[in-house]
Design a protein around this nucleic acid. Structure first.
Length: 305
DNA sequence: AAACCTTCCAACCGCCCCTCC
DNA sequence: GGGAGGGGCGGTTGGAAGGTT
């Protein structure tokens, strides 16, 4: 007899959503007797459920150490990092995230992270940039993915540097002009990233494979004065490179073999203004960051080169 | 306001591994 | 060694909630 069919074959057992009363019965029983022996637990607890259903309800919902609520950026980073090494080993991933269940992580991955990665042109399965970007028929070429800087910064260290370099090269074909424009501007303006030695900066910019990191306080959403940019190698007097429509495209962002570089989020805080934003806020931030909304007023776009 | 669509997530299902006898 | 039972895992589903037309 297949064990998997035990639940199904037991007649008179309730299925579907749990009621508060059922939850209370299960909690009371487990608190009193501990969990385990799930097969016999429902009978002893007075529940018309199969043991498997009870176990799932307990481990995924009723356990006292369950952490409810939205995932933090740190948790999201951890998930992506672990997934890149483990694949869909949700329980193994969950063991690294206290209070989170494999089911919750799996759901979050499927509903949020995969979409976010796809939006950035990254294959959520392989964690490599999607090579279908190069397909002439690909809509991605026509409507290229607008890479999300903070998200890329967060996942940068989890991606294979070689793949990233390849992707950067490939992607640079798409919108090379804007990258070159910025690189040229940076070199001419003697811009220097606080996170990159000048030599490294020159090296990476010469290869067009990497753009400098922005710092924690760099204003991306426009909620803080833009002069913060000056602290991160942004020469306010010269005004950084933006496209004519005010969008700062990140298509060419690559991070090369940057493992030695202090991660932007090394402090463990989030990227945008150091806030611990909610998922919605992060998405909002991301969507805004996708096209870095620099105010056009006062920007001398033509005087950059 | 209502119908329709999309998103999200709790719960289920089937398979697998481990332990016990 | 092998069958049975217990528990865990990953994939999938169904319905509620929210959003859009």
């Amino acid at each position: 007899m297949r064990k998997s069919s035990l639940c199904r074959e037991q007649n008179g057992l309730k299925k579907g959503s749990w009621t508060a009363e059922e939850d209370q019965k299960l909690v009371d029983y487990v608190q009193k007797h501990g969990h385990g022996r799930w097969r016999t637990l429902p009978k002893h607890a007075g529940l018309k459920r199969c043991g498997k259903s009870c176990r799932l309800r307990w481990t995924n919902y009723l356990r006292p150490d369950i952490k409810r609520g939205k995932f933090s950026i740190e948790e999201e980073e951890t998930i992506i990092q672990l997934h890149s090494g483990m694949g869909n080993k949700w329980s193994a991933i969950a063991s690294h995230l206290p209070g989170r269940t494999d089911n919750e992580i799996k759901n979050y991955w499927n509903t949020h992270i995969t979409k976010k990665l796809l939006r950035m042109g990254i294959d959520p399965v392989t964690h490599a940039p999607r090579l279908d970007l190069l397909e002439p028929s690909s809509s991605l070429l026509i409507n290229p993915p607008q890479f999300d800087l903070p998200s890329l910064l967060s996942i940068r260290s989890y991606l294979n540097p070689d793949i990233l370099n390849l992707a950067t090269t490939l992607l640079s074909c798409q919108d090379n002009f804007k990258t070159q424009e910025m690189v040229t501007s940076m070199q001419q303006n003697q811009l220097q990233s606080p996170f990159l030695p000048q030599s490294q900066l020159m090296q990476v910019t010469n290869s067009s494979s990497i753009l400098p990191y922005f710092g924690h306080d760099v204003n991306i959403n426009g909620h803080q004065p833009y002069n913060n940019l000056a602290n991160y190698g942004y020469d306010e007097s010269k005004q950084g490179t933006v496209s004519q429509n005010g969008a700062f495209w990140c298509n060419n962002l690559g991070f090369g073999s940057s493992s030695s570089i202090t991660p932007l989020n090394s402090s463990g805080t989030s990227y945008v203004n150091g806030c611990t934003s909610t998922e919605d806020e992060r998405d909002s931030n991301c969507s805004k960051i996708l096209t870095f909304d620099f105010p056009m007023s006062g920007l001398d776009v033509n005087g950059l080169a």
